[in-house]
Design a protein around this nucleic acid. Structure first.
Lengths: 143, 143
DNA sequence: CCTTAGTGTAACTATTTTGGTTACATCGGC
DNA sequence: GCCGATGTAACCAAAATAGTTACACTAAGG
């Protein structure tokens, strides 16, 4: 399937900031996070910008700039992260509109849309079960 | 997100064949199906080839060739279709492997993979709830 | 002030996925 | 053998995703 890695990267970034702050640091830079994630700092900043708009992270500019969490890790679920960064749905309907003269072509869109709504709801329910605190706990356990 | 339309098209194709057969026809051609879906016949054949391998559809060659269902619509769930055509997972881990020296970089992969397994399981459970018979009923209701 | 480290964001490129198209070998009933 | 279809490879186009460069802007600290 599509398979994008944004949720993974975003969770990684926030978890990294959370751990860094717990170790006594004020802010984390996109450069530091990018090193851990193994990508370009701009990729991190773009994601954190969305997370910031969603109220999950905050940035500070000027000298001593960087990123910090807007809430504790325990107060951020993967659903929060998902909603902050994923615009589209998991499944798409037809790229080109099917033949409206055909009964199936006419009715299949709404029928599938209803199913997809339920699937997305289930997916969200599942993502809501895990907080970044849970993720960090697993991470530390594995170390 | 990714958003591919394969599941939609595959469900459309099978439902179309099912209805066509109920109306007394032996087989449906990829050309007919493609007209209803509004795409190229090869796209349909490619999908039906996978559905055939999964035991959901059968093809006949030579003169009077075409496609038929291998099972009744009521015996095919959207999960069956999904598994027949979707290879990869919904969410991907890091594209490049994160810094293994970093605790978070080291442990985040397995941690997220565990969550993603649960999410996929929920998604499958949800898809299994709907059969193509259900889809056809909705389609006919909308007509 | 003015230096400086880092954010914010646009613009461009590369890679991958997805879907559409052409082409043609093959099959099998008539 | 003819003919209408499948089966598949090969190629192309478009879109999504991620990586990169570039640079204006911000604000603490000297």
């Amino acid at each position: 399937m599509s398979a994008n890695s944004r949720l993974t990267i975003a969770a990684h970034a926030l978890t990294w900031i959370g751990l860094y702050q717990r170790r006594g640091h004020e802010v984390a830079t996109s450069e530091q996070i990018a090193t851990s994630v193994n990508t370009n700092p701009v990729v991190i900043r773009r994601l954190l910008a969305k997370l910031s708009k969603a109220g999950l992270a905050d940035s500070r500019r000027g000298a001593g700039a960087g990123w910090m969490l807007a809430r504790d890790l325990a107060a951020i679920t993967l659903l929060d992260v998902y909603q902050a960064i994923e615009p589209g749905p998991v499944f798409a309907l037809h790229r080109a509109t099917p033949d409206p003269e055909c009964i199936v072509g006419h009715g299949i869109g709404p029928a599938m849309a209803a199913v997809y709504d339920d699937v997305e709801a289930a997916l969200r329910r599942e993502l809501a079960k895990t907080t970044l605190e849970d993720v960090l706990r697993d991470v530390l356990k594995a170390a």
